[in-house]
Simulated assay, not measured.
Amino acid sequence: MPPSVDHIRFVTEAYLACHPDERDSLTVLFAALTDADDPTNRKTFPAHVTCSAIVINGARHVLHIVHRASGKLLAPGGHNEPDDGHLRDAALRELHEGAGIPPNAVVPLSGFEDVPLDIDVHTIDANPSKDEPTHHHVDFRWVFLLGAEHPVTLQNKEVDGYEWRPFTSAASPTVRSKLALLP
């Protein structure tokens, strides 16, 4: 069963307790949570929830993968699936699918077990071939420590490459600023 509206709301409120100044930026999410459609379904428009894994290695670098469709360097992540019971489960599944790192190779960063590092709302362009209008992804970005060095094994169907980047070079400005605050 996909993450419930109650679960998404609980996680969002826990996040906003740490970042109250970001409430206005999540109005698209709150609208999706009041709609009758499943907010985790990739065909729910004008917005739906996605999840990403911010993975930190022992050198304090963050994993980025090159998404084939966009050519963008991003954290491993994507859409929720029906068997993802919680948002964090979706991030771990996407990490394993995209980068070959299994869930048992990472642990949540202390203090971020039940709350994401970041929630980002971004626009996705229309894709007529998939019958998708312009819409928003509300991306819950979960942060994990790589327990031991584990090889990255890319899913060649969707991923073209990867990089480990220092915190100061993380692709997302909001993730970069939140990583800078970590001890």
Score class of each variant (00 low, 15 high):
residue 2 P to V: 15
residue 3 P to A: 15
residue 3 P to G: 11
residue 4 S to L: 07
residue 6 D to Q: 15
residue 6 D to M: 10
residue 7 H to C: 03
residue 8 I to H: 02
residue 10 F to I: 08
residue 11 V to N: 02
residue 12 T to N: 12
residue 14 A to K: 13
residue 17 A to R: 10
residue 21 D to I: 02
residue 23 R to F: 04
residue 23 R to S: 06
residue 23 R to M: 07
residue 23 R to Y: 06
residue 26 L to W: 09
residue 26 L to P: 04
residue 29 L to G: 13
residue 33 L to P: 02
residue 34 T to I: 02
residue 38 D to M: 00
residue 38 D to S: 10
residue 39 P to S: 05
residue 39 P to D: 02
residue 41 N to G: 11
residue 41 N to Y: 12
residue 41 N to E: 14
residue 41 N to T: 13
residue 43 K to M: 11
residue 44 T to W: 06
residue 46 P to K: 01
residue 46 P to E: 00
residue 51 C to I: 10
residue 52 S to M: 01
residue 53 A to Q: 04
residue 54 I to R: 09
residue 56 I to A: 06
residue 56 I to F: 07
residue 57 N to A: 14
residue 58 G to H: 10
residue 59 A to F: 08
residue 62 V to E: 01
residue 62 V to R: 00
residue 64 H to S: 07
residue 64 H to Q: 11
residue 68 R to W: 01
residue 70 S to K: 07
residue 72 K to N: 13
residue 75 A to K: 09
residue 77 G to S: 05
residue 77 G to F: 05
residue 81 E to I: 08
residue 84 D to M: 02
residue 84 D to E: 07
residue 84 D to V: 03
residue 85 G to H: 12
residue 89 D to N: 09
residue 90 A to E: 02
residue 91 A to P: 12
residue 93 R to F: 01
residue 103 P to M: 07
residue 103 P to N: 03
residue 106 V to Q: 01
residue 106 V to I: 01
residue 108 P to K: 04
residue 108 P to F: 04
residue 109 L to N: 04
residue 110 S to K: 12
residue 112 F to I: 03
residue 113 E to W: 04
residue 113 E to K: 07
residue 114 D to W: 08
residue 115 V to S: 05
residue 116 P to G: 02
residue 117 L to P: 05
residue 119 I to W: 04
residue 124 I to T: 08
residue 126 A to R: 09
residue 128 P to I: 05
residue 129 S to L: 09
residue 129 S to H: 09
residue 129 S to A: 14
residue 130 K to W: 10
residue 130 K to Y: 12
residue 131 D to R: 08
residue 132 E to T: 07
residue 139 D to E: 14
residue 140 F to C: 01
residue 141 R to C: 08
residue 141 R to G: 06
residue 142 W to H: 07
residue 142 W to M: 07
residue 143 V to N: 01
residue 144 F to E: 00
residue 145 L to Q: 13
residue 146 L to H: 03
residue 147 G to P: 04
residue 151 P to M: 04
residue 154 L to S: 02
residue 155 Q to R: 13
residue 156 N to G: 14
residue 158 E to D: 10
residue 159 V to I: 15
residue 163 E to L: 12
residue 163 E to K: 14
residue 165 R to A: 11
residue 166 P to N: 03
residue 166 P to C: 03
residue 166 P to F: 02
residue 166 P to Q: 00
residue 169 S to W: 07
residue 171 A to H: 14
residue 172 S to W: 12
residue 173 P to K: 11
residue 173 P to H: 10
residue 175 V to I: 15
residue 175 V to S: 03
residue 176 R to I: 03
residue 176 R to A: 11
residue 177 S to G: 04
residue 178 K to E: 14
residue 178 K to M: 06
residue 181 L to A: 15
residue 183 P to F: 00
residue 183 P to H: 04
